[in-house]
Structure formats: C-alpha cells, structure tokens
Amino acid sequence: MSNSGQQPTRSDEPIWWALFSAGGVCFAVVIPGAILAVGVLYPLGLIPGEMLGFERIRHLLFESFLGFAGFIFVGVAICLPLFHAFHRIRHGLHDLQWAHGWAAKSACYCSATLLSVIALGLWVAAH
C-alpha cells in the first residue's frame, strides 16, 4: 500500500495553494467592500450614479496610481479571487465525487487562467 522504498514525487500544489490563499485574502478583505459599494449601495441609490460616471471611473482605473489602479483592481478583485474560486471548485468536485484527477484539475485552473487573461485584456483594451 504505502511505498517505503522509493520517494514520492513532489506535487505542484504549492503554486495553486499560494494563488488560492492570496485569492482567499482578496475575497475576505477586498470583495466585501467592492460588492457593498457597487453591488448594493449604488443600486439602492445610496451612492449617486454620477459617482460611477463613465469618465470618472475611467479616470480612477486608468490614471490614478500612475495608471496602475485598474491593474491592481483587476488583480485583487478578479484574477486572484478566480484562482481561489476554481481551486475550491476543483476540491468540491472531488469532495462530491463528481470529478477528480488531471482533467478536472486542468479544467479548473485553465478556466481561472483564461478568465484572468480576458480581464487583463479588457483592462488593456479599455484604455
């Protein structure tokens, strides 16, 4: 059953776990405020629409912080949370005995990577 002789191979999990953990911090620290402002207070009229005006948001995302505010926002509110989410989905699929192994793992992290690339691409495109 267990291999006492040969050494087991090193897993690549530290990479995914690091991304998962960083995304978990973002999910806990950044996301609540972002949803509160954009997803709840604005639709309820507690944040006036002008504050989310086209020019104002463009200015915030593309000009503040030397033009990197948008990049940082995409990283902490989209890309890292994506890796967090797909890591948990991958383990959830295993927990529910729906899917596991190489295929499920690649599908999950490829989705996270692809969506992150799209988000970063849109950040570039929106300039």
Binding site: P8, T9, W17
Partner: peptide, 14 residues
C-alpha cells in the same frame, strides 16, 4: 519533506 510534498502528503488536505 518528500512525504509531505507529495500529492498524498499535506496536499490532500482541504
């Protein structure tokens, strides 16, 4: 460490 580093080591834990 090789035992911990393996898929069936610490990395199976959620």
């Amino acid at each position: 460490m090789p035992q911990l580093n393996a898929k069936d080591g610490v990395w199976t834990c959620t």
